[in-house]
Amino acid sequence: MEAKTTLTWLDKLEQQLDVDVDWMDTEYIKTMPDRLGLVPHDQTSNQLWVDIELHKQSNAELLKQAARELNGKSWLHIYTRASVMICKRNIGHIKDRVLLQTSPSQAYNEEKTLEHARLYDEEFKRVGIPRSRYCIKIPSVGPALNAAKTLSEDRDEEEGLPIATLGTAVFGLAQAIACSQANMLYISPYFNEIRAHNDLSLWPDVKDPATEHPMSARCVQMIETFQKLYKQTGRRQPKMKLASLLSAKEAMATAEFGCHSATISAKLLDELATLQYDEDDASSTTAQADKGIMPKPAPGVEFYQGLRQTPARLQKLAKVDPLAAADWDGQLASTEVDYLASGGAALHRAIEKDPIAQDRLAYALEVFSDAEERSRGKIEDVLSSL
């Protein structure tokens, strides 16, 4: 690899937080060091990305192999094994963890979510991927998060580690607090709603996303809440892995919020690698913001212990919510509420009172469930051909 003489936006972002790849294509991931100068930390995915992989001709034999090995088992077991096999192919090209998501169609069924997460655990163990190298994404609704709490208490005899989980499809502070109560390793708030990826008229393409994007306030409030909880309890809090980013400016804003990591699409990673970073450009909001960002906490330091205070220019976001319901009383979600009790009843009520969270969560689960159903059809076609 040729020595770099200039700093790209991607280089700068990696200095400030952990950059992940939100894609499963092996050829893309393994060529990232030479093309982009980056080895990603985590490889994230969801039912959409898995479905794309399962429909590729290049993965036809992999899927047939999983179907032959598990002929007579459920389609979900075949789906799970094939997904893990793709992760096995990718794990040598990343630094940290591969992530797969439990069935979105069963998000409101605690036992089914628990069963699927444990099936992933079995399949990862089968291919030699330890618990320290994977994480299970779980939709942030009450029943599924109760399953995540159970998984956090289930330590492997050999590794002594629980099954690490990530709370996905987070749109509001109550969901974030519930993820803390479920002892999750990560949360992934969606900075933009899923619809905006296909309908840019729904995308708030603002000049300075850190201060102007309507989701920024909620991101700042989640980070500050986790910092407060860590100081009060000394207990590890979920690290924020921001997702659903649509522009290079939004990607750079993640570090200013204080996120631990950002999971970024292949298209956006490519763009970040072409942009030259100029810290002396006074007109650049990215360069201005950089002056208030501390380096990543050192390895081994609890993330929220090493995190700095919210930058001065973002502090006004701590008490506002552009996405709140019209009758919002100005009070943020309370950390004193047990959002997981009674199957997540309090979380369900909080989501119902938050029209944005309710709508975007329902849509996310619908989109992922539709992709899962397409994968099921593909697997059943393969089984019928055996």
Rank of each mutant, 00 (worst) to 15 (best):
F171W: 11
Y190H: 15
F171H: 12
T225Q: 04
A182T: 07
G172W: 06
V206C: 03
I223W: 00
Y190A: 13
E157V: 09
I177M: 11
E212D: 08
Y190K: 10
D199E: 11
P189I: 02
E159I: 09
M222K: 01
L229Y: 05
P189L: 06
L200C: 09
A176Y: 03
S201N: 15
E157Q: 08
L173K: 00
T165Y: 04
Q175G: 08
I177L: 09
A217W: 00
S188Q: 13
Q227R: 15
G167I: 05
P189R: 00
A182D: 05
P209R: 02
A169Y: 08
A174P: 04
I194N: 12
F226V: 00
A164S: 13
S216K: 03
E224A: 03
I194W: 09
S216I: 04
F191C: 03
L185W: 06
L200M: 12
T165W: 06
A174S: 12
D199K: 05
H197N: 14
C179A: 15
M222I: 13
E158Q: 11
Q227H: 10
A176P: 05
I177V: 14
D208N: 15
C179M: 13
L173G: 00
N192D: 13
A176C: 11
S201V: 11
V170K: 06
P209C: 02
T225S: 02
L200P: 09
N183E: 13
S180I: 05
N183S: 15
A164L: 14
M184Q: 15
R218C: 15
M184N: 11
L166M: 14
F226S: 00
C179E: 05
M184E: 08
A196M: 09
F171P: 07
E224F: 02
D205A: 15
E224Y: 04
V220R: 03
I223G: 00
D208V: 13
H197E: 15
D205I: 10
A178L: 07
M184W: 08
A196F: 07
A196S: 15
I177Q: 06
A174Y: 04
G167R: 09
E159N: 08
P209D: 01
S216G: 10
V206A: 02
I187N: 00
S188A: 15
L173P: 00
A217D: 01
A178V: 09
G172D: 14
E224M: 05
S188G: 12
M222W: 01
R195Y: 07
Y190S: 13
S216R: 02
P209N: 01
L161Y: 08
L185V: 11
H197C: 08
Y186P: 05
A164R: 10
A164V: 07
A174H: 01
I223K: 02
A174E: 11
A217G: 03
C179W: 10
P214F: 02
C179R: 08
I194L: 14
I194A: 12
I187F: 03
V206P: 01
A174D: 13
R195H: 07
E212Y: 04
C179P: 08
Q175E: 15
